[in-house]
Simulated assay, not measured.
Amino acid sequence: MTRKLQTIGFDADDTLWHNERFFKLTQDRFEDLLSDYSDASQLHDRLIEAEKRNIGHYGFGVKGFVLSMIETAIDVTDGAVPGHVIRKILDAGQDMLAHPIELLPHARMAVETLAQSHRLVLITKGDLLHQERKLAQSGLGELFDDVSIVSDKTVTTYRSIFDPLPGGSEAAMMVGNSMRSDVVPAVEAGAWGVFVPHDLEWDLEKADAPQNPRYHAIEDLGYLPALVTDIG
């Protein structure tokens, strides 16, 4: 008998390992550096606006974030930002690229358990080299049958990944911490979407939960194997 669920896709950052905490720490450093020119709240809003504008140019990830910080620093200082501040922003970005990988609770157990029975696919956004490095350091790479590092996660993205696999999108599940990127478009593509909340959430990844029977939410990855078993 063919299983209803044959393929499980996992997001990487803040689903399998910590990531947003490093963006938050760097943003705090950025606000300290520019405290003479702008209050933290205004600077936060200006940075978010820069990130929105720049996603289409730089994509997702640390490099685009650093360039958006530099652009924001130039804007809020009317071009007078000191060179040493730019240097510190660049240093902060390099620190982010070098941070060690720390798996989230139950991530290894969930991936190892489900790799025994299902096809696993890692689907993540971000810089190619950085994401490849993080996957290698995580120790989880060999458990995935395929890895897709994409520019964005849309309905078309998920269909292009899931449809060619056995059972297509209807026999696939996407697991992640972003409602906007991991859950909503996957459900719209015909797959199951499983939301695993993280304590920190990037403003640009927020969205309403889909009103669909294929949507599920779990507290952490420790609950995922049981959910997969229930689906069948």
Rank of each mutant, 00 (worst) to 15 (best):
G190I: 07
I101N: 06
G64N: 07
Q131W: 01
S181V: 09
L90V: 11
D163G: 03
M69H: 08
V187K: 02
E219M: 09
T113A: 13
D91E: 14
L67P: 00
V76D: 09
V150M: 13
P225S: 05
G9I: 05
V155F: 11
I48N: 14
Q42W: 01
H18Y: 14
L43F: 02
D146A: 15
F195Y: 15
F30D: 15
A207D: 14
Q6R: 15
D203C: 02
L114M: 10
T156Y: 02
D230L: 13
H44F: 12
V187P: 10
F30N: 12
D208T: 01
I86K: 06
E71C: 06
R87N: 12
L221V: 04
A136D: 15
G61R: 06
D220S: 13
V194N: 02
T77I: 10
R87W: 02
F162P: 01
V183Y: 03
W202A: 14
L129T: 13
L16K: 09
D14E: 08
G141L: 11
K134L: 12
L97E: 11
G139D: 10
S41V: 15
G139K: 15
G56S: 09
P166H: 05
E219C: 03
L33V: 01
V155A: 13
D14R: 04
D91R: 11
I123Y: 00
K125V: 00
D152S: 13
R29D: 15
N54V: 00
V150I: 10
K63A: 14
E20R: 12
T113W: 05
I86H: 12
I149Q: 04
E188V: 00
S68P: 01
N212L: 02
D39R: 11
M1H: 13
H106K: 03
F162V: 02
I70C: 13
A98F: 01
N54F: 05
V76P: 07
Q94S: 06
F60V: 07
G222A: 11
P210W: 10
L103K: 04
T77M: 10
D91Q: 14
R108W: 02
R159F: 00
E71Y: 03
P105G: 04
H198V: 03
L129F: 05
Y223M: 15
A50Y: 04
G167A: 06
R108K: 12
A226S: 12
P105M: 07
T77H: 13
T2S: 13
V85T: 12
